[in-house]
Design a protein around this nucleic acid. Sequence first.
DNA 1: TCTGGGGTCCTGAACCAT
DNA 2: TCTGATGGTTCAGGACCC
Length: 602
Amino acid sequence: MRAAPTILHLDMDAFYASVEQASKPSLRGKAVIVGGLGPRGVVATASYEARRFGVHSAMPMAQARRLCPNGAYLIPRFRLYQAVSEIVMGLLRELSPLVEPLSLDEAFVDLEAGGVAFDSAAARAAGERLRADILAATGLSGSVGLAGSKMLAKVASEEAKPAGLLLIEPGTERELLAPMSVRTLPGVGPVTGQHLRRAGITTVGELAEAGEDELVRMLGRSHGVGLHRMALGLDDRPVVAERDTKSVSVEDTFDVDLHDRVRIRYEVQRLADRCVGRLRDSGHSGRTIVLKVRRYDFSTLTRSETLRGPTDAVAVVREAAARLLESVDTTGGVRLLGVGVSGLADYTQEDLFAFALAAEGEGAGLDPADPDPAGPDPVGLDPVRAGAEGAVERGPGAVPGAPAGAVGALGAALDPVGGVDGARVAGGAVGAAEADPSALPDGPAGTSGTRPSPDGGMGAAGADGDAEAGSDRPAVAAEVHGADGAPGSTGTPGAGEARGTVDSVGASGASGASGASGASGEPRAGGGVGAVERRWGAGSDVWHAVYGAGWVQGSGVGRVTVRFERPGSGPGRVRTFRVDDPELAPSDPLPLVGDGPAAAAG
DNA sequence: TCTGGGGTCCTGAACCAT
DNA sequence: TCTGATGGTTCAGGACCC
């Protein structure tokens, strides 16, 4: 707690939704909801227009649709948000070397460390200047809180929202905090809040009066002491520029609960592959492997295993995850699976055992984690080590069609009864014709998985996968209703079994779309040389040789509807083309302002 | 109504070594 | 050798955050 309000907290307003509105002028002033579009999706961000309908973050998407049926529902485009975030963080670093990012849209800045401000007046001026600079550089608004501690700066920015600045003068904090809800304090969520309410404590003032001993008794030592200090406005935590990553994990929620044990094992393997890919990207190895299982009733359990030394070997992580799975009862169904690695080291210990195992198991098709060791791994190599990112990331998402087809085939091949899972995937998703055989876990399944799609035409909507597999482009699927009355493309939720990650949300839209939209095209893939029909994901950016930049508002029945507008323009006109119009091509997002994020976002 | 994904931190139990 | 105290590590679960 310092004597001058020189800790700044920046919070961008409705960040994802604001970026989408900035990038698509026709959505400005409209209710925009960004999040997962699958049947189990939740809202990541809602624009302030959507919040007026009662839509808010973490709300189930189905509920949001009921509250705001005419909103524009969009899949997150994290690459674009990241690019915008980098611009904002760059502006913060001009203020001080001590910048502590909390997420893409939030950060603390120590203004004293930057020599920018040592008193209230200078801090306020710096905050105002920052807001103006962010607006000029990105076209977006952010809210700024200034105080003598991180906690109070965060409270201040929350109070300042939207598009404001609030400075809490040291000495006034207790008075300011006293009437506020206990939920205002960081660390008080729904559970603790309820706990406190039952004890008759609803405001920060009451929390301060309760006394440390009482809070320790109720909440435990660490939480109780910390919360009491917060209630008194005491917080000495410094702004920390660099924070070490402690764990890396990936998880998928399935649109339909999984029952088939073979399928569950297969998904765990794929998650292990993706997790190792992420681990290596971050330059880490890790000792503790964690398996997470959320069951049909939403109960969650974790199982972990600590190895003798850190590893980043696919085979080792796969095997450990498979062992952990054996100790879990999945009767009744599984809605989520996750694999994580903690106990990170920033070096990779050469694990000879792992190498031996990898060479023996993955190369020779003897991977003990392979559900069908008899079939040689079509990839033939550690997909991560070999740099075949597609194989790793393809998964549920980047490539809705491929894995769905693959998985469906797996289910169908291994479940003589017809495998509810497999059957549904195969029926809804499709794209088997485009499914990369390397995505299949074994030979026979691969064979059946690569049969031509019976749907044909738009029925193959789910299969945009391979085009995206090797690209960094996020799956861009969206449903836009009411933007100007153009028909939105509503999928058939639940028809597929795509999962809820970012990319898999795309998959969800795609597989569910079954002829509507949701499938993204083949960005930079060379125009899909074969007989593959091009498909366009609603919300994705395109370029037309005559009309210029636009974005896909919907597609179906061999047609794609594009709205031609750019961040700097007014709302644009809508035109419809054949999906194979040679003058229409996918493109990268345009910069929101000037030459901003586009290049970086590409 | 029906609950994402990727994290961090804390607590308590069990186990082991000293 | 047995017992108890103590402390570190591992494991599992839960709460919270964005």
